[in-house]
Simulated assay, not measured.
Amino acid sequence: MRAPGGEAFRETRKIVQSHGLHTVCEEAACPNIGECWDRRHATFMILGEICTRACAFCNVATGKPHALDSEEPERVGRAAGDLGLEHIVITSVDRDDLKDGGARHFAETIAAIRRYAPATTVEVLTPDFRKKEGALETVIAAKPDVFNHNLETVPELYRRIRPGADYRHSLDLLKNVKRRDPAAFTKSGIMVGLGETDEQVFAVMDDMREADIDFLTIGQYLQPTRKHAALERYVTPEAFARYKDLAYEKGFLLVAASPLTRSSFHAGEDFAKLRAAREATLRS
């Protein structure tokens, strides 16, 4: 990837900073930031910049979070309007310290985007809301266009890679989104290169289809620092192409699989493809 720069990149950064917002593009050291910000696309990270969990793959800071910023949803809404976004992705840190895990904050952010950028479609990439009764229902009621929650890796690696999370709980969360709002698009992703086998990846695909997930993303894990989980292998582009072909055979509406695939990379274009794929399925 080329180094970030250019007028559009600087303008995007200026708008993000002027509203006092955080982006996962910066906090997670995403390799695609240059391309995305040049196109005025940014993934906003709400609920602060400090996570209550310490996943072995993630570059976001871990510790004791600050109090919720009640004005943050409004600022995200205004930023969406200022950027003129067709599609926006809202994600967050985990907030196990909050009674609802930050669900109401998500809902308020969606509502603010609807006010300031009514033509913008909204995608949320949420935490698992584990042990947070009613949290999922709060976000679903706000009617995001896409509900994304990443499984991140195969269940056999959860204890090492995603401590504090539960594979089955994450699957059930996505299954319940579709049960409660059949019109919603659901999405999930995993990283490869952490020590998983192809057979384990295929099994995750099957679990996702059983949960009626529409959109699968698969990308290469890149080790952020020496303290993070070690990189076990680089997956070839040919292997990613095989993952993609098999996933389509299993029935996903849309699949993105490549070394640089990330949850919100090309999210706007992918949403248009996702909508078209569902319409084609309904016509057939």
Rank of each mutant, 00 (worst) to 15 (best):
G6Y: 06
K143R: 12
D198N: 12
G5P: 14
E72P: 06
P155E: 01
L222N: 10
R278G: 12
P144A: 04
S92W: 01
G189W: 05
E27Y: 10
V124L: 04
A3L: 15
D214Q: 09
N150H: 08
A142Y: 07
I88C: 09
G84N: 06
E156I: 13
E7M: 08
K14C: 13
A239G: 09
E156L: 14
I190V: 04
A61G: 08
M191A: 10
K64A: 14
A103Y: 05
D181L: 10
L231G: 09
R75M: 05
F129L: 07
G20A: 11
D128F: 00
D82G: 11
E123C: 03
T261P: 03
T91K: 06
T186D: 02
E238V: 15
G102D: 00
F57C: 07
V60K: 04
D207F: 09
P259M: 05
Y243N: 01
E137C: 11
I50Y: 12
D96V: 13
G193L: 02
V124N: 01
T43M: 06
R159H: 00
L253D: 04
Y243D: 01
N148E: 02
D166V: 14
A247D: 01
T138M: 06
Q17R: 10
R278T: 06
C36I: 03
R10F: 15
R78E: 15
F252K: 03
D96A: 10
T225L: 14
D96W: 14
K227S: 13
L216M: 06
L83R: 07
E152W: 00
K143D: 04
V177A: 09
R275L: 15
R78W: 12
C30Q: 10
F129E: 00
A276H: 09
L260T: 04
T217W: 00
G5E: 13
C55T: 05
V146A: 04
V177K: 04
I46L: 15
Y248P: 04
A165H: 04
D128W: 02
D82Q: 11
L216A: 08
A267P: 00
L260A: 11
E152D: 01
D245W: 10
T109V: 10
I90P: 00
L282Q: 12
V146T: 06
I190H: 00
G48V: 11
K175G: 02
A103K: 01
L21I: 13
V122I: 11
R168N: 13
M45L: 12
F147M: 01
G268C: 07
F185C: 09
R2C: 13
L98F: 05
L282I: 07
G84I: 07
R283N: 03
L231T: 03
E137N: 12
Q17C: 14
H87W: 07
R180H: 15
V154N: 02
F44Y: 12
D100A: 05
G84W: 05
P118G: 05
R40Q: 09
F147D: 03
R160Y: 06
E199S: 15
A67S: 05
G77A: 12
L85M: 08
I190R: 00
V122M: 01
I88A: 08
E26P: 10
R39M: 10
G6V: 05
V139E: 01
D212Y: 04
A229G: 12
E152C: 01
W37C: 15
A119H: 09
P224D: 00
R114A: 01
A3F: 13
E86L: 06
A230G: 15
